[in-house]
Design a protein around this nucleic acid. Structure first.
Lengths: 210, 210
DNA sequence: GTCTATAACGCGATAGAC
DNA sequence: GTCTATCGCGTTATAGAC
C-alpha cells in the first residue's frame, strides 16, 4: 500500500488547503459578527497567528477572499435550489419551496447572502469568472422553475417574464425584511418569515385569475 | 432698520451653517459616486480646502455626518409621503402612489435610502434621537395609510397587519431590485420599475378576494 | 518553490496642544 | 482654524528558512 502514503507534495498541498479553509472560516465568522464590510485582512492574520503579509501566500488580496466566498455562496445556493423539495409537486408547494429555500439560504448564511445579493462592500467587484458562474447558476434555477410553470396548464394573464419577476421581487422583499427584523428566527417564523404562505396564495390568485 | 443688520454672532452662526450645508452636500456627492461606505472624512476636508482636524469643529465624527443625513433622510421621506397624490382617492391610485413615492424617494436619493433602509456601514448606528424620529415618521406614514384602508369598506380576508406587511415587503423588493438593475431609470420604467401596476393589481385581488 | 518574517508606504479617523 | 502625533488598515518589497 505504498500508494496510500502521501508524498511530500501531497502533504504540502493538503496543509495549504487546510489553511485556506481556516482563512475562509475565520473570515465568515468575522463577517457575521462585525458586518461584511468590517472584514479585516490583518485581523484574519492575527487570528491565525500570522503576520499580515504571510496571508498573501494564500489570497492575493482582501477582495480575493470576498470573491472566493461569493463564488462558494452561489455554488451552495445552486445546490440547495437543485435539492429543494416539491420540484415536481403541485404548483403551490413548488412555489412555496422556492421562496422558503431562498429565504432559508439567506437566514442560515447571512454573510454570504449579503455578499451575493446586496452590495455591502463598494470596492469589491466580483471577478469575471465568479460573476459568470453566479449568473449561470441563477439563470439555471430560474429556467428550471419557469419550465415547470410552462409544463403546467396555467392561464397566466400577464407576460411570463413579468410574472416571474413579481415572484422574485416578492421573495426578495420578504427575505430582506425577515433578515432585518428577525435574523435569528428560522423561515416560517417572525413578522415577515411567516408571511410566505400568504404571499404564495397572492401569487397563485393573481396568476390564475380569469 | 438697525434690526436688519446682523450682529457678529448672527453672522458667525450663518457662516457656520453654510459650511455645515457644504459638508453635507459634499458628503452626499461622494456617497453617490463611491458608495455610502466609502465616504471619507479626510476627503471632505480636502474638498473644502481644510485640514481634516478642522472638520471636527462642525461634526464630532464621521458617524455624526451619517447620522445627520439619516435624520434628514427620514424628514424628507416623511414630507414626501405626506404630500403624495391620491391620498383620498380610490384605493388603487392611493396604493400605487404609496409604492411610487417609496420607490421614487429611493431612486432620487439612493445615498440616503441606503443609509436609511439598508445597513451599508456596520459601524454606524443611528443615534437614539435620530432612530426615534425615524420610527415615528415611518409609523405615521403607515398609520395614515392603514386608516384610509379601514375607512373603506374592504373585505380583507387576512389579518390587517399582515396585509400591510405584504405591501411593505412587495414595495421593498421591487425598489431594491429596481435600484440594483436600473438605478438610472425613473419609477415606472425598467425591468422592475414598470411592475408597480401589476403588483398593485395583485394586492387588490388578494385583498378583495371573496 | 513555499512559507514566514520584518520594514516600510500611503491611506484613513481621530485626539490634543497651539 | 492649524500642526503634530497615534493608531489601524491593505499592501508591497525584501530577505531568510524549509
Amino acid at each position: 500500500m505504498a500508494e496510500s502514503i502521501p508524498t511530500v507534495k501531497q502533504r504540502r498541498r493538503r496543509y495549504r488547503e487546510e489553511i485556506i479553509e481556516d482563512i475562509l472560516r475565520i473570515a465568515r465568522e468575522m463577517m457575521r459578527k462585525e458586518g461584511v464590510a468590517a472584514l479585516s485582512f490583518n485581523a484574519i492574520a492575527r487570528e491565525l497567528g500570522m503576520r499580515p503579509p504571510s496571508l498573501y501566500h494564500y489570497f492575493d488580496s482582501k477582495n480575493a477572499i470576498y470573491d472566493e466566498l461569493f463564488r462558494r455562496g452561489f455554488l451552495e445556493f445552486g445546490r440547495r435550489m437543485n435539492e429543494r423539495p416539491h420540484q415536481d409537486g403541485p404548483l403551490r408547494k413548488n412555489l412555496q419551496s422556492v421562496i422558503e429555500t431562498y429565504m432559508g439560504f439567506a437566514q442560515e448564511n447571512p454573510d454570504l447572502y449579503q455578499l451575493m445579493f446586496q452590495r455591502p462592500v463598494p470596492e469589491f467587484v466580483p471577478s469575471e469568472a465568479s460573476m459568470a458562474e453566479s449568473l449561470r447558476l441563477l439563470a439555471a434555477a430560474q429556467t428550471q422553475f419557469a419550465d415547470t410553470l410552462r409544463s403546467q396548464e396555467l392561464a397566466i394573464n400577464i407576460p411570463f417574464a413579468e410574472a416571474l419577476d413579481l415572484v422574485i421581487a416578492f421573495q426578495h422583499g420578504l427575505t430582506e425584511l425577515h433578515l432585518a427584523n428577525n435574523p435569528e428566527l428560522p423561515v416560517g417564523e417572525g413578522r415577515f418569515g411567516k408571511l410566505i404562505p400568504l404571499a404564495v396564495q397572492m401569487i397563485l390568485d393573481a396568476w390564475q385569475k380569469s
